[in-house]
Design a binder for these strands. Structure first.
Length: 779
RNA sequence: GCCCGGGUGGUGGAACGGUAGACACGGAGGCCUCAAAAGCCUUUGCUCUUAUGGGCGUGCGGGUUCAAAUCCCGCCCCGGGCACCA
């Protein structure tokens, strides 16, 4: 993934880019044409915050951090096509970013809207929903986010909700990430229908429900406090009560309002109005309550307390009737029952189960023109404008006469000026810069103002991988032919923290850009395979710069070398697992370094060689040769299944075996074959030491060699351990030929005196033979 | 509450129906050395036993199977995601 340049690489970078580099080198050895680009997600708050603190321009600050990160990426030995390097703050990248924005604007994907949005007081800017944690805090700064009613830019990601959800199916991604995205999109199927308001002829209240089958149990209805009909439907006698509620709700932060503790504490007020149940034509009271959200569905619901716990809580608090429409099981202990069961108290639905009655209810609503089937999503449009300086300027102009006018493409990029003052004002420093702000309307040539907001930096990282395909392309942001050649990305690697944010935005961008013709129609997904590596923890928390608990890789690179550090990250456990950095970690890294030293000595012939003259092929020679072929087979498989820790273990085992072989007297050719195999198989993991060894041994570049192949016949185990069990308990073992039959295996086992002693005069009830590995005698 | 992961020696982890603990760290002992470092070798799940050998062991309780760390059912604990989303 596109790294944010925060300075020298940390252990998380080392881990991530070791996996990436290993795959690149491995695939190259296998003969693939590999594109391995890198760039820097170089817009963002840290640089601007530093500017506020120190007065250093964010560009200077950022360029320094990029140089540091680049240096450490090179020092860990990662290979990249640096010619394709991209930086978000490059004028060229800004230009194409803005071209895409204007295309989105033209297509209606980008729009401006006044809405209650998330404001982070710490970052002094608005945030997208995805950037607010479930605790209601900013995912970056941790500050409590507040709601503000502001005019902001959005991208219509919700138009893609269905496709974003459906296409997850075919992605080779971790199930966990797919589930998170599914949850986030939050699809629910149901009905949207109208409730007639009593004494207001022609006036209806639109509600959404996933359970129209429970309509006979509707005993009241609820509107969100922000619902536009609140004012009209509140009768004078209830005005005071309603106003009090509205006031209280308005004064509370989102967190207080949605506090988990208050789940059962429902607050509401009666409007004095009634709505009509379309199934029964009976009237039910209409309430206002803060547990109904204006931002989801229609902002109003039919309340069925018997089958919805929230409605139950409200009903009991306000003494409203409860009518069950699904018979709960005999032993049901709870309150609201949302499980399946036969319908009751539901007239023509009685006796049906939920699925059947749902269909019947939906059909009724549609036939009687009361409502329609409807799908709702939890996903909201992506808020992309930010009140910050260090980001890509949004390329529009505000004209009193012409309204919002896009900056003509030939005038792009719109670049921020350098002479600005960095103050924590809550508005972009651009706004105070008249030279930037004052412009002329491209349409009517009258004085006009520029947009001062910049784009969310997640915009920059939503399409960089498409630019990588041809970063030199001048006719547009993306070269469609090159994109056709390289996309989608075959293997994408990153941290789980992007499960929703970057990975959802990038998917949306890919689909939108395809729809707008920037890429060919079949490119609908950016990343075919995704791998999320585990995070590195120190003292129970994620190791990160902001937590201040970094263990700098540079020290290790200086003492034990980049190879030992890379090897540690591969050996410590499965790539997906978290790594705990403990007191023992240094010793494990030492161990990795020790292994490399052993390999080195083996490779340069610096070890105890007992009998190294050529001699006739003894049995150990053949055994060693076979072991080498098995090693190639095993390690190749391990690479394919991302099991690098076991691949390293196998390499260690083989090095140990070769030492033993050398001490016992070896045949030079077979010994060399074994050493060369280890070097080749380890080359993608530890590129430096293997390159030097290969150079000395063969005067060639190990990284240009072909991946070693094995002879299946030689890789085959010929002698294996046969296990003898009595009642599944291990009693004896034998070394046997791998190709013995079941009967031969039984004969061998039965001829064992050990087995015979245990058996005594008991007759086996049954004998299970799985030649050549196991015989189990049941007595 | 719902949805994902995950619980294996002193530690990281292997094995993913068929020898539990590969490989490594740490520990113990030894070789080399005047000494140390480095290196090399042996040993190392727990437990009973002088020993040959036996018993117990993969979070807990059941089940399926000749055979379960692995499959099924029910719990417990840890990590993560979503959560008043109708």
């Amino acid at each position: 993934m596109y790294p944010y340049p925060s300075g020298p690489a940390h252990q998380g970078h080392v881990r991530n880019y070791t996996f990436g580099d290993l795959i690149v080198r491995h695939k190259k050895m296998l003969g693939y044409n590999v594109l391995s680009p890198i760039g820097f997600d170089s817009f963002g708050l840290p640089a601007e915050n530093a500017a506020i603190k120190t007065g250093i321009h964010p560009r200077i600050f950022t360029d320094e951090r990029i140089a540091e990160l680049k240096k450490s990426l090179i020092s860990i030995g990662a290979v990249y096509d640096w010619r394709r390097e991209i930086k978000s703050h490059d004028p060229d990248y800004i230009r194409w970013n803005q071209v895409i924005f204007l295309a989105f604007l033209k297509a209606g994907i980008a729009y401006k809207n006044k809405a209650p949005v998330n404001w982070c007081p710490g970052c002094q800017t608005v945030l997208a929903n995805e950037q607010v944690t479930s605790e209601g805090t900013c995912e970056r700064s941790g500050d409590v986010v507040v709601k503000r009613n502001l005019d902001q830019w959005f991208f219509r990601i919700t138009d893609y909700a269905e496709e974003l959800l459906g296409d997850l199916e075919n992605l080779d991604w971790p199930e966990r990430v797919k589930t998170m995205q599914r949850n986030w999109i939050g699809r629910s199927e149901g009905a949207e229908f109208d409730l007639q308001v009593k004494d207001h002829p022609g006036l209806t209240l639109k509600v959404f429900s996933t359970r129209p089958d429970t309509m006979f149990g509707m005993t009241f209805a609820v509107m969100a406090p922000e619902h536009p009909l609140v004012d009209i439907l509140t009768v004078p006698e209830q005005r005071q009560e309603v106003d009090a509620l509205l006031e209280q709700v308005a004064s509370e932060s989102e967190i207080e309002r949605q506090s988990t503790e208050g789940t059962s504490r429902k607050r509401g007020a009666f409007t004095g109005s009634y709505v009509i149940n379309p199934f029964t034509s009976l009237e039910v009271p209409l309430y206002i309550a803060d547990y109904v959200l204006m931002t989801y569905g229609t902002g109003a619901i039919m309340a069925v307390p018997a089958e919805d716990q929230r409605d139950w809580d409200f009903a009991t608090a306000y003494n409203l009737p409860i009518i069950r429409t699904v018979a709960p099981p005999q032993d049901f202990q709870g309150e609201a029952y949302s499980g399946d069961g036969p319908k009751i108290n539901s007239a023509w639905l009685n006796g049906l189960n939920i699925a059947e009655s749902k269909i019947a209810a939906l059909d009724w609503l549609e036939e009687n023109k009361v409502g329609t089937r409807k799908v709702n999503y939890r996903l909201r449009d992506w808020l992309v404008s930010r009140q910050r300086f260090w980001g890509c300027p949004i390329p529009v102009i505000y004209c009193d006469k012409c309204g919002i006018v896009p900056v003509p493409e030939e005038d792009l990029p719109v670049l921020a000026p350098d002479d600005v003052e960095f103050l924590p004002t809550g508005e972009s420093p651009l706004k105070a810069n008249n030279e930037f702000m004052d412009t002329i309307c491209p349409t009517c040539q009258k004085p006009a103002k520029r947009e001062s907001d910049t784009m969310d930096t997640f915009v920059d990282s939503s399409w960089y991988f498409l630019r990588f395909c041809d970063p030199w392309y001048e006719q547009g942001p993306i070269n469609p032919l090159e994109a056709q050649q390289w996309m989608p990305v075959d293997q994408y690697i990153g941290g789980i923290e992007h499960a929703i944010l970057h990975l959802l935005y990038a998917r949306f961008y890919t689909k939108a850009l395809s729809d707008l013709g920037f890429t060919s129609p079949e490119i609908r997904e950016p990343f075919k395979r995704l791998f999320t590596q585990g995070m590195i923890r120190l003292g129970g928390t994620k190791m990160s710069k902001s937590k201040g608990n970094l263990v700098d890789p540079a020290g290790y690179i200086e003492t034990v070398g980049a190879d030992a550090l890379r090897l540690f990250h591969l050996f410590v456990g499965p790539p997906a697992d978290d790594v705990d950095w403990t007191d023992q970690t240094n010793e494990v890294i030492e161990g990795c370094s020790r292994f490399l030293s052993r390999l080195w000595r083996l490779g340069v012939g610096d070890f105890n060689r007992a009998n190294f003259e050529s001699r006739s092929k003894a049995e150990t020679d053949l055994e060693t040769e076979k072991a080498t072929h098995r090693l190639i087979k095993k390690v190749s498989q391990d690479y394919d299944r991302w099991s690098y820790n076991t691949a390293v273990a196998s390499l260690m085992e083989h090095v140990n075996l070769l030492y033993k072989y050398a001490q016992e007297g070896a045949l030079q050719s077979i010994f060399d074959q074994g050493v060369d195999a280890v070097i080749l198989l380890a080359a993608p993991m530890v590129p430096h030491v293997t390159a030097e060894l290969w150079q000395r041994r063969h005067d060639q570049d190990v990284h240009l060699q072909r991946w070693p192949s094995f002879d299946p016949e030689l890789a085959r185990q010929t002698r294996v351990t046969l296990v003898a069990q009595i009642n599944a308990k291990l009693r004896d073992r034998f070394e046997v030929d791998a190709d013995i039959s079941d009967q031969e295996a039984i004969n061998i086992v039965m001829s064992s005196s050990k087995i015979q002693n245990i058996l005594g005069d008991k007759q086996p009830k049954r004998i299970i033979a799985k030649a050549p590995k196991l015989v189990n005698i049941v007595i």
